[in-house]
Design a protein around this nucleic acid. Structure first.
Lengths: 294, 294
DNA sequence: AGCTCTTATGAATCATTGA
DNA sequence: GTCAATGATTCATAAGAGC
């Protein structure tokens, strides 16, 4: 990789990088055990054909494993690797390459610590004779050691968060009216929820995909990497996305005060990160929205 | 198996059976291709040690496969096999026996048509240093053929999130209505929503576990087998649960006018079904609650 | 500013057609 | 045959316009 292919992006105090190339090659420039967390959504089988060549489902494990070997090498002993992936339906059946990948990663030395479910609240439409719409993806959590860095308190949510979210759309007047006129349990509960303590989430994450007007569609919503970065790193830690794509992971990491390293084979990725760099304010990327989880 | 070990239970018109024994043995009395749907929640690894001997996680696939061979034999060509299962965490890691089971079942001739997620809205409490509460289980959908019986219309649900719609519309209109009328504004809106079109669900099922007064804890809530029975069978079809346990599948099947065959190795199962048999009314089991899904 | 209505848009999937 | 490209299907969100 030549020097011009590198784009160094500077945030206020931490250096974050957006690198062009295949992570299999680029990562070899990095020393062992320098990364705290890897969060990524790799190209799915038969997807992103223009950049990664549209990996065939049957070839997926062989394609992935050498790259995962690099991930294992650069990850710190207490670090984590979060892999967002979902097998596609092939010839009327779910393909097994993700299952085989999990088994192969374990043979490579990874521990399959947990499988989180991302419930896509607004999944893709469609109707077929033999299946319903696919509304979930896997977030596979691998670690090197049984003991790893995890800050559960960082992702606690107000109890009854679901209710609070839905009640947001209620105007204050409406609540007041209900409270004064009816005095029913409905209005009283609102007050109770707001004073509640924080609760720990579960391993099911309820997030909508971001289908806004951005021309560059992100693989996952900003809230997804946000959640895992909060959970599995501290401030100043290093977060790597080896298939950075739209740069969502980098944005989440930088906003949370982590150092971000993004790698992608597409020139657009680096260009996009350059666009977002704002040297005057000394900020990389724009501030994002708050997350909502489980 | 001796005749006294059989307990024949008669519903109004259809014969349903609760059989004592290991399904590996009992099913050999059944002819090929006589079952329309198999819905079951088998004993998980290391669970139910008193009845099935507490199958070790490493031995789980070997234990399961010969029984699955019987399932494949008795299932009709257009039938389905729904397996509710979740791997346990062993030594800080998710065990891989479920993944290996899926691969092994495919080698046996099954098609892995889909993986549904049962999101347990009220999951088991607890706190661990390296994981959150487990709020989901797999519902693996296997078939013999790519074409199989599926009645999607039977499980359609009102469009949108019911609760969300309800609270959103608690805006100006409802307050106005409340002011002008003595009656409850809620009731009026409910009528509106019921006029809406129905939508097809997704492959994520949102169901609360039943933490009711029953002393016999069911593996899954009644709504779970109900949903798959509605989706994958018609009236008069034959539903089999080879690990019938608490009898939830039988109850769901019989209430929906299907013929149910339940097998379990525990004497309690047969006794419980006998208790629930009410010959005066000619009904088997009590009517259940309606289901709520996605 | 709030609320309501409209509209664009997705890591989807299958059946069909064409090379 | 095998593989690749296209059309039809369809709904929860968020953004945007209008009052």
């Amino acid at each position: 990789m030549n020097a011009p292919e590198l784009a160094y992006l500077r945030a206020s105090t931490l250096d974050s990088e957006a690198l062009l190339g295949d992570c299999l090659d680029v990562l070899q420039r990095y020393p062992d055990q320098c990364i705290d967390l890897i969060v990524t959504s790799p190209p799915y089988a038969d997807q992103r054909a223009t950049t990664y060549g549209g990996i065939k489902p049957d070839d997926y494990v062989d394609w992935f494993l050498p790259r995962a070997a690099q991930f294992l090498r650069v990850l710190k002993p207490g670090g984590s690797f979060v892999l967002n992936i979902k097998e596609k339906a092939v010839h009327g059946e779910r393909h097994t390459y993700v299952l085989e990948l999990i088994l192969a990663l374990r043979k490579q030395g990874w521990l399959w610590t947990e499988e989180y479910v991302w419930h896509k609240k607004n999944c893709y439409p469609g109707k077929w004779p033999n299946r319903f719409r696919d509304a979930w993806e896997r977030c596979l959590h691998f670690t090197r050691n049984r003991q790893f860095k995890m800050n559960q308190d960082a992702v606690r949510v107000p109890m009854g968060d679901w209710a609070q979210t839905r009640l947001k759309s209620l105007g204050k007047n409406d609540v007041v009216r209900y409270d004064s006129q009816v005095g029913n349990a409905f209005a009283k509960n609102i007050a109770n929820w707001q004073g509640r303590a924080l609760a720990y989430p579960t391993n099911v994450l309820h997030l909508a995909t971001e289908c806004s007007n951005k021309q560059h569609s992100a693989a996952y919503p900003l809230a997804l990497p946000q959640w895992f970065i909060k959970l599995l790193t501290g401030e100043g830690d290093v977060v790597l996305d080896p298939f950075a794509g739209s740069g969502t992971t980098l944005q989440a990491a930088i906003e949370l005060g982590r150092r971000a390293i993004g790698i992608d084979i597409a020139q657009e990725f680096v260009d996009r990160c350059r666009e977002k760099l704002n040297p005057v304010q000394g900020r990389l990327l724009e501030p994002g929205k708050s997350y909502v989880v489980d």
